[in-house]
Amino acid sequence: MSKMVRAALAAERRGLFVGSLASFAERYPEVAARTGSIVAAELAKSVKGDKFKSIPAFYNREWCECPDKERGLAVYVPEGVSAGEKITIHVGGVGTRADKYNCRNVIVVEECASAFIEVRYAGGLCECGRLAEVWLGRGASLETVTFFEGEESEAVIEGTTIVRCDEDADYRSTVAASGVKSFTDNTKVILAGRGARATVNGAAVGRGDCKIECNTIIEHASADTSSRQLFRAVAGDSSLVRFCGRIYVAPGADRIEAYQQNNNVLLSDRARAVAEPRLEIYADDVKCSHGSTVGQLSEEALFYMRQRGISEDEARKLLVDGFIGEVFGMMGDAVLAGRLADRMRL
């Protein structure tokens, strides 16, 4: 817990709160009640066929009833506060060897506040579920980066994030999935207020017989909202990568823009990629597009690189780097982007 204590103290100095869910509920009972309602509302209207049905069982509990409250972490950025340096959420810590590790996070960025949060799944995890509720107030901005930080492992990880964006809020997320037996990331963003924006990106590298799945739902609930998604995956050996992305435009949500792009590269003939783009549009005046590709590394590009003296193996690596790297290129933190790119290297 010392990590958490240290983080809490540092946060305090910067005018924000980082601490357990229990202490968060004590200190900010109203905010806690408000955020708790996101999940309740989502459960109530869970649409048939949603990947979110499969949210782990702990989803159903009110988070303040979480059996191990210390495992839940809340980040609260009050109105107008800029959180400055990044906040790290460790999911599972050093020495965590529990068979099952579940945790909940609540992240609230109030009006005109901003934060950058990295979420690290620890190396020792076996089976892990994480549920995060995120609330961005009017004009708030949040960037998150989620990744597994351990060595290649047999871990099974499933994370679900539900985000609500008020007017003019800006949510940007990047998930880097690699290194585990099974990695599932579910992200739902509700663009609730006019002018809200979301950029939801992901990169995946599948090795061995691992399975990586990214499911997104972007709900344009209000007019003049915009979203962009870019998911890139490389599947080697006999791995499976899957992207299921849904864009939902509510009736009356006019003048919205929603773009989704999913590109997959298969490195072996046993690897598989599944792309399921879905658009559901109930408004008239919208700009929406989606595109999916599944292919192999370009033979032309490989030949070009080899003609410059680069070995076939290195050329493949560089091409994969470049393909995946475009996702990281959109991150705000260039140093972290570089580290993630290194981690994803074949």
Binding site: S298, A301, L318, L319, G322, E326
Partner: peptide, 8 residues
């Protein structure tokens, strides 16, 4: 026809 290599 020089080849374009995105991201590199």
């Amino acid at each position: 026809y020089p080849v374009e290599i995105p991201g590199v």
